[in-house]
Design a protein around this nucleic acid. Structure first.
Lengths: 110, 110
DNA sequence: ATAAGTTATCGTATTTTTGCGATAAAGGAG
DNA sequence: CTCCTTTATCGCAAAAATACGATAACTTAT
């Protein structure tokens, strides 16, 4: 039995990203950003039934997780996916799932 | 500008899995299960500072997300990763991230 | 300067999640 | 049978997430 060490910085970042994506609204925002290269915040707002302030909060969560990035374009803000963040996550998940043992503990019938 | 359609069943399942993994405690439980082939609930409990009932709740969340599976072994319960669930998730993430456009909206300086 | 449009943040209400103790169910040991 | 161990569930408290309106900051156009 191996004792669990506390989560590394990398894994905490991974958890933060997974949590950010593990919400239907944010998941849809990411999909929207992926599908639309024109990514002004207001377009995202119009695409949801939610208030502008709510969407802004969700964008903040995604931004802080490093999954999207915003850039001020004149009076508006252009959000796009953050390729570095997504590629990093993809890589980490790959490593993580590869390491994971899917072996089943041999069932000892008592 | 493309209008967003509501999330498909598959995507909702994906969100559910991401949410389940997007919690430090559950993430560690999964790591623990991956590292230890002996996966009795009580061992998981001993590995955390949390109460048994709390761990049981987290296991339920992971189980309902299809990420782990439990099997009653005598008086105890043996939990293991669910290979199908994880492989499905890995596959979906691969597809999802491959589809995602990382192109940046061309910045029009006004 | 004023007005219109866009976005971030603040305060707050509601909902959900997280955590715990107590309890019940179920199996195995004596 | 009784006792012990293990686990799931219930009820509840505390914490966090979610959503909204109001507001402030900022840009652009008039």
């Amino acid at each position: 039995m191996k004792k669990q060490s506390p989560l590394t910085l990398e894994k905490r970042r991974m958890v933060q990203m997974l949590k950010a994506l593990g919400n239907p609204v944010r998941f849809e925002i990411v999909e929207f950003l992926a599908e639309n290269q024109m990514c002004i915040t207001n377009d995202i707002v119009k695409n949801t039934p939610l208030a502008q302030s709510t969407v802004s909060q969700h964008l903040k969560v995604l931004r802080e997780a490093g999954l999207i990035q915003g850039e001020i374009e004149g009076p508006a803000t252009c959000y796009c996916l953050n390729p570095e963040g997504f590629n990093w996550l993809k890589e980490q998940i790959g490593i993580w799932l590869a390491d994971a043992s899917f072996e089943r503990h041999p069932v000892i019938k008592l």
